[in-house]
């Protein structure tokens, strides 16, 4: 029962995080800042949802596979994010930066 509730929470939270992240990639002004939205929310969303599912699965093959998916995402998602940012940097895409807070939109 508690497990159910927990997984419920996880799933819903995960979903929400995902949605918010998706909103984020529309709100943020430039590529690099969007990367934060994707890179971070993506991971948490995945973690939460997979955790929710894992709780449901209990100890089983399914749980192992979920763990595997989890492992995969956690390994690859930030890697991809990093590599992408890296590539963008090499590709000549300049980030919008400012050193003083409050002037994010320049």
């Amino acid at each position: 029962m508690i497990v159910d509730a927990l997984s419920w929470i996880c799933l819903v939270a995960g979903g929400l995080v995902g949605v918010v992240g998706a909103v984020g990639i529309h709100r943020f002004p430039d590529f690099y800042s969007r990367q934060h939205a994707t890179g971070t929310t993506d991971t948490l969303c995945a973690i939460l949802i997979l955790l929710g599912l894992g709780l449901q699965a209990g100890i089983s093959l399914a749980a192992f596979k979920i763990a595997l998916i989890f492992l995969f995402l956690i390994l690859t998602s930030p890697t991809a994010t990093h590599a992408l940012a890296n590539a963008a940097m090499h590709g000549g895409l300049k980030p919008k930066t400012d050193s003083t807070p409050g002037e994010g939109k320049s």
Partner: peptide
Amino acid sequence: IVKANIDVIKRILTWTGKSISPQL
């Protein structure tokens, strides 16, 4: 990660165009 997300989510939801200040 959770901290990071809470932070980012906050910024997204309260987005007014001023809540971030990107840096390298």
